[in-house]
Amino acid sequence: MEHIISVTLENKSGALSRVAGLFSGRGFNIESLSVAPTLDPSVSMMTVVTNGDERIIEQILKQLNKIIDVIKVVDLNESDAVSRESALIKVHARSEDRAEALRIADIFRANVIDSSPTSYTIEVTGDVQKIHAIIQLLQPLGIKEIVRTGRIAIAREPVRTVATQSRPLAKAN
């Protein structure tokens, strides 16, 4: 089963290769991996998409935790999470196809970020299905090049039903 794991780690040289080395050394799968610094510049946040049965995922989580540069590991499958991926797609767009390319981009709320007489570069963000769908629709026009970010994900903030009663007054001393 696919799992999205969020890893908080030290933002220093070597930390990324410790994580990557763990996956290759122990034969775990990486489907995608993306990493960038957080608000605290000494800390990076990594999103790893992997798959495996329950036992393998348990090992992956434990092994990640064991890495000394890793500060925190969260399996986002255990809570509700939102995930997104971006792609830059350079598509052939000769005169007869240009309108079609723009129409497809529009349907997916994608942006054209570069244009040449024979091509458009389209930027799209969404879940995996959306990225797959736009790629499928653009393919007949001819995709020249494609770059994807890999998925990033974040846990949803739990929605609490707001209590209507007023907060108790501070005790008077």
């Binding site: 036992r55 348990e58 090992q59 434990k62 092994q63 935790n65 064991k66």
Partner: peptide, 8 residues
Amino acid sequence: IDPTSIRK
């Protein structure tokens, strides 16, 4: 002491 040893 090593959690990874357990259920490996």
